[in-house]
């Protein structure tokens, strides 16, 4: 049985809830209260992840931390169709890894801005976080525009989404909570909408389902 150490309002935990739902896997949630009790910094939790970060999974006792690492692991092991992380397609794996790192880097920009505005993490330099997020969004928006021109709906080439899309989705979808508007990124907005229409997509507080579709 897979156990997910989870926090409701965490975008990084949301990545794992998304892949578990897309792959239709049963799992048990263990709530770790990030705010206000900072349970992720508690003695007990530090035994599980000495970095004091969420998410963490335990798969029959195999413990893994880091949202991107968990995405790679779950997709490689459980995706029978082999589309979310096609291990044999080396070019695509390279491209996915590049965007996984990009998704991770949003934790220091768009996610930090959201923590600043929502949960009062005042040690972040909010203007810097927002500026960094905008420069990242611009790069992704341009990339997605050219993907659309080539007939690709997703971040990486091909007809199906990959874990790169999952890694980038949460903190972009939640960006307005950190005062980062997406109004200037039309390709991103179209991609968010396509993402929400993936079968078995789930929501979290702050993220709504797609409107009535075409």
């Amino acid at each position: 049985m897979i156990k997910l150490y989870d926090y409701l309002l965490s975008g990084n935990c949301f990545k794992i809830r998304l892949i578990l739902s897309f792959l239709n896997l049963n799992y048990e949630k263990i709530h770790i209260e990030f705010y206000p009790s900072e349970e992720h910094k508690s003695e007990n939790f530090l035994q599980i992840n000495p970095l004091g970060q969420l998410p963490v999974i335990s798969d029959d006792g195999f413990i893994l931390r880091d949202a991107q690492a968990i995405l790679v692991y779950l997709a490689s092991k459980y995706d029978k169709g082999g589309t979310w992380y096609p291990v044999k397609n080396t070019d695509k794996i390279g491209m996915i890894s590049q965007w996984l790192a990009f998704g991770d880097s949003l934790t220091g920009s768009a996610s930090a801005a959201r923590l600043h505005d929502t949960l009062f993490y005042h040690h972040f330099n909010i203007e810097k976080c927002r500026a960094m997020a905008h420069s990242q969004f611009r790069i992704l928006d341009e990339h997605l525009f050219f993907q659309e021109e080539l007939g690709n709906d997703w971040i990486c080439d091909g007809v199906t989404p990959t874990i790169a899309d999952i890694a980038c989705f949460p903190y972009i979808a939640l960006s307005e909570e950190g005062g980062i508007s997406r109004i200037s990124y039309p390709a991103i907005r179209r991609w968010l909408d396509r993402f929400k229409r993936i079968e078995r997509f789930v929501v979290m507080p702050g993220v709504f389902p797609a409107g009535p579709g075409p």
């Binding site: 409701l8 309002l9 709530h31 209260e33 705010y35 009790s37 909570e177 507080p205 702050g206």
Partner: peptide, 19 residues
């Protein structure tokens, strides 16, 4: 903790509407 999580869930859903 359960009570707090429930409140955070509800308020987290209200936030984007309010903003």
């Amino acid at each position: 903790k359960d009570i707090r999580l429930f409140q955070q869930l509800i308020f987290g859903q209200d936030k984007p509407i309010l903003e």
